[in-house]
Protein backbone atom coordinates (compact mmCIF):
# COMPACT_ATOMS: atom_id res chain seq x y z
CA UNK A 1 0.00 0.00 0.00
CA UNK A 2 1.42 3.39 -1.01
CA UNK A 3 1.46 5.90 1.82
CA UNK A 4 1.72 9.67 1.99
CA UNK A 5 4.69 10.70 4.11
CA UNK A 6 5.75 13.98 5.64
CA UNK A 7 9.01 14.62 7.50
CA UNK A 8 9.86 16.93 10.36
CA UNK A 9 13.56 17.80 10.61
CA UNK A 10 14.79 19.32 13.88
CA UNK A 11 18.48 18.50 13.49
CA UNK A 12 20.98 21.07 12.25
CA UNK A 13 22.67 20.03 8.98
CA UNK A 14 26.22 20.11 10.35
CA UNK A 15 25.50 18.41 13.69
CA UNK A 16 25.88 14.70 13.25
CA UNK A 17 24.31 12.59 10.53
CA UNK A 18 20.63 13.13 11.25
CA UNK A 19 19.94 15.46 8.33
CA UNK A 20 21.65 13.12 5.86
CA UNK A 21 19.74 10.18 7.36
CA UNK A 22 16.52 12.09 6.77
CA UNK A 23 17.37 12.63 3.08
CA UNK A 24 18.25 8.95 2.67
CA UNK A 25 14.97 8.00 4.36
CA UNK A 26 13.13 10.32 1.95
CA UNK A 27 14.81 8.72 -1.06
CA UNK A 28 14.14 5.20 0.24
CA UNK A 29 10.42 5.80 0.73
CA UNK A 30 10.09 7.41 -2.71
CA UNK A 31 11.95 4.48 -4.28
CA UNK A 32 9.37 2.15 -2.75
CA UNK A 33 6.49 4.00 -4.39
CA UNK A 34 5.35 6.10 -1.44
CA UNK A 35 4.92 9.85 -1.77
CA UNK A 36 6.53 12.75 0.07
CA UNK A 37 4.70 16.03 -0.29
CA UNK A 38 6.47 18.14 2.29
CA UNK A 39 9.49 18.30 4.56
CA UNK A 40 9.13 20.77 7.42
CA UNK A 41 12.29 22.13 9.03
CA UNK A 42 11.92 23.48 12.56
CA UNK A 43 14.20 24.79 15.31
CA UNK A 44 17.90 24.16 14.42
CA UNK A 45 16.66 22.18 11.42
CA UNK A 46 15.97 25.47 9.64
CA UNK A 47 19.75 25.97 9.26
CA UNK A 48 19.49 23.35 6.50
CA UNK A 49 18.24 26.08 4.15
CA UNK A 50 21.27 28.36 4.57
CA UNK A 51 22.42 29.08 1.01
CA UNK A 52 25.98 29.98 2.02
CA UNK A 53 26.80 26.66 3.72
CA UNK A 54 30.03 25.18 2.36
CA UNK A 55 30.67 21.47 2.95
CA UNK A 56 34.19 20.06 2.47
CA UNK A 57 34.50 18.28 -0.87
CA UNK A 58 35.00 14.86 0.68
CA UNK A 59 31.81 15.12 2.75
CA UNK A 60 28.13 14.93 1.77
CA UNK A 61 26.38 18.29 1.66
CA UNK A 62 22.92 18.17 3.27
CA UNK A 63 22.01 21.40 1.45
CA UNK A 64 22.83 19.95 -1.95
CA UNK A 65 21.08 16.67 -1.22
CA UNK A 66 17.86 18.29 -0.03
CA UNK A 67 17.82 20.69 -2.99
CA UNK A 68 18.33 17.79 -5.39
CA UNK A 69 15.53 15.80 -3.77
CA UNK A 70 13.15 18.76 -4.08
CA UNK A 71 14.03 19.23 -7.72
CA UNK A 72 13.64 15.57 -8.65
CA UNK A 73 10.44 14.88 -6.73
CA UNK A 74 8.76 18.29 -6.38
CA UNK A 75 8.91 17.90 -2.60
CA UNK A 76 8.20 21.12 -0.72
CA UNK A 77 10.98 22.14 1.66
CA UNK A 78 9.51 24.50 4.26
CA UNK A 79 11.53 26.35 6.87
CA UNK A 80 9.55 27.38 9.96
CA UNK A 81 9.53 31.15 9.60
CA UNK A 82 9.97 32.06 13.27
CA UNK A 83 12.81 29.55 13.79
CA UNK A 84 14.39 30.71 10.51
CA UNK A 85 14.32 34.46 11.19
CA UNK A 86 15.98 33.99 14.59
CA UNK A 87 18.81 32.15 12.86
CA UNK A 88 19.31 34.70 10.10
CA UNK A 89 17.56 32.71 7.38
CA UNK A 90 15.70 35.25 5.29
CA UNK A 91 14.16 35.26 1.83
CA UNK A 92 14.22 38.51 -0.13
CA UNK A 93 10.84 39.65 1.26
CA UNK A 94 11.98 39.16 4.87
CA UNK A 95 15.39 40.69 4.18
CA UNK A 96 13.66 43.84 2.92
CA UNK A 97 11.13 43.85 5.76
CA UNK A 98 13.80 43.55 8.44
CA UNK A 99 16.36 45.74 6.66
CA UNK A 100 18.99 43.06 6.28
CA UNK A 101 21.59 43.09 3.47
CA UNK A 102 20.05 40.29 1.44
CA UNK A 103 18.40 36.89 1.20
CA UNK A 104 20.21 34.00 2.89
CA UNK A 105 17.82 31.13 2.09
CA UNK A 106 18.58 28.71 -0.74
CA UNK A 107 15.93 28.95 -3.51
CA UNK A 108 14.92 25.27 -3.06
CA UNK A 109 13.47 26.23 0.36
CA UNK A 110 10.50 28.38 1.33
CA UNK A 111 9.62 30.08 4.59
CA UNK A 112 6.27 29.14 6.09
CA UNK A 113 4.29 29.01 9.32
CA UNK A 114 3.76 26.09 11.69
CA UNK A 115 0.29 25.76 10.16
CA UNK A 116 2.01 23.99 7.26
CA UNK A 117 3.34 21.36 9.68
CA UNK A 118 -0.11 20.95 11.19
CA UNK A 119 -1.57 20.61 7.71
CA UNK A 120 1.05 17.99 6.81
CA UNK A 121 0.12 16.04 9.95
CA UNK A 122 -3.48 16.01 8.83
CA UNK A 123 -2.87 14.93 5.25
CA UNK A 124 0.03 12.50 5.75
CA UNK A 125 -0.35 8.85 6.72
CA UNK A 126 3.07 8.97 8.37
CA UNK A 127 4.91 11.91 9.89
CA UNK A 128 8.48 11.06 10.87
CA UNK A 129 10.71 13.26 13.03
CA UNK A 130 14.48 13.52 12.62
CA UNK A 131 15.98 15.16 15.70
Amino acid sequence: MALDYALLVLAAPASGHSSLTAVRFARALLARGHSLQRVFFLDNGTLTGLAAAVTPQDEHSPLQQWAQLAEEHQTELILCISSALKRGLLDSTEATRHERPGATVHPAFELGGLGLLVEAAQTADRLVTFG
Partner: peptide
Protein backbone atom coordinates in the same frame (compact mmCIF):
# COMPACT_ATOMS: atom_id res chain seq x y z
CA UNK B 1 15.47 25.62 22.09
CA UNK B 2 13.53 22.39 21.50
CA UNK B 3 11.09 22.81 24.43
CA UNK B 4 9.93 26.11 22.95
CA UNK B 5 9.57 24.55 19.49
CA UNK B 6 7.60 21.66 20.99
CA UNK B 7 5.19 24.07 22.69
CA UNK B 8 4.87 26.22 19.56
CA UNK B 9 3.97 23.11 17.59
CA UNK B 10 1.34 22.06 20.13
CA UNK B 11 -0.11 25.57 20.18
CA UNK B 12 -0.23 25.71 16.37
CA UNK B 13 -2.10 22.39 16.25
CA UNK B 14 -4.54 23.66 18.87
CA UNK B 15 -5.01 26.93 16.97
Amino acid sequence: SLPRSALDTALAAAA
